[in-house]
């Protein structure tokens, strides 16, 4: 049986643990941006780690259940209903066969995760069910009319309710010195950590694009062209405009802008839930 997508007004993708070991072919890693939230959704419905979930960006999702299953919604706060009746966020909920499951638009945060017992069993591509939005390697984007197969349930849903809701508050990202810090003016890491940034509107699964609130720029003193080099998750790249970009799951495997700092992966889950205009600061790791 499959579940039919009735409405998917924003970006909705399938995500599992991601696609590793292929960066040397130019393939992004992909995977959920908010890994703790995606993992929690899977645990709540009794799935093994890295079973595929749906990542729902801002605008919600409506599905018709092909069979009765446990589901769980985590991550960005949103209204959850089954046939119009309110259900919980951050807990396992039973959806009857044929019922309509609706996730409303995100009321706080950006990305919600929908897990179903058995996992979303779309055909894997290069060993993963994750969709990368840079090169569109992976299962196709989820749209109205998409039919999503569901795998066999692995076990019972979690009996203990776990707090899953995204908590607001100022985001302070730790930074390690980057490999090309020496291409910038002395004291640049301290300047990065002393600057108030706001999330730019072009931020996506590829990168968190930041703009200094007071217009400060990170000044590059060694302007020789940098040969393309391998990029890591959390790399803080600085393009010629001097405003940092934090690379996220769909980042290109190689890049030519110097990396001034690196944010540890554990800090990036918070980034997944930031909206344009939200404040961001850095501090030394």
């Amino acid at each position: 049986m499959t579940w039919e997508v009735l409405e998917a007004p924003g970006l909705v993708t399938v995500q599992d643990g991601g696609r590793t070991g292929l960066a040397h072919l130019g393939v992004p890693r992909a995977g959920p941006l908010d890994r703790p939230a995606a993992g929690l959704a899977g645990r709540l419905v009794g799935n093994p780690p890295h079973a595929a979930v749906l990542e729902v960006t801002l605008s919600g999702l409506v599905l018709r259940a092909g069979e009765a299953r446990w589901v769980a919604v985590t991550g960005a706060a949103c209204e959850v209903t089954v046939d119009g009746r309110a259900r919980g966020h951050g807990r396992a909920e039973r959806v009857p066969a044929g019922a309509v499951l609706r996730l409303g638009p995100a009321t706080a945060g950006v990305r919600s995760y929908l897990a179903v017992a058995g996992g979303w069993a779309v055909e894997p591509v290069l060993g993963s069910r994750s969709t990368d939005t840079l090169a569109w390697v992976g299962p196709p984007r989820v749209l109205a009319g998409t039919l999503l197969p569901v795998g066999p349930p692995a076990g019972p849903p979690a009996t203990v309710e776990v707090p899953g809701r995204w908590s607001p508050g100022p985001v302070v990202l730790r930074v390690h010195p980057g490999p090309r810090l020496d291409r910038f003016a002395a004291g640049t890491l301290a300047r990065l950590c002393a600057t108030s940034y706001a999330v730019g509107p072009a931020s996506d699964r590829v990168g968190l694009r930041l703009a200094a609130v007071a217009g400060e720029v990170l000044e590059r003193t060694d302007v020789r062209e940098l040969a393309s080099e391998g990029m890591v998750l959390g790399a803080v790249q600085v393009p010629p405009d001097g405003q940092p970009v934090v690379l996220l799951a769909d980042h290109p495997a190689t890049g030519g802008y110097p990396v001034v700092a690196v944010v540890p992966a554990d800090d990036l889950a918070r980034v997944a839930q930031l909206r344009p205009g939200d404040p961001v600061r850095f501090r030394p790791a």
Binding site: T20, A23, H24, E229, G230, V232, A253, T254
Partner: peptide, 14 residues
């Protein structure tokens, strides 16, 4: 996890 050659570097990630 990843071994990524490039123009003047090799990245060892993971």
């Amino acid at each position: 996890v990843e071994v990524v050659p490039a123009a003047r570097t090799v990245l060892f990630d993971g």
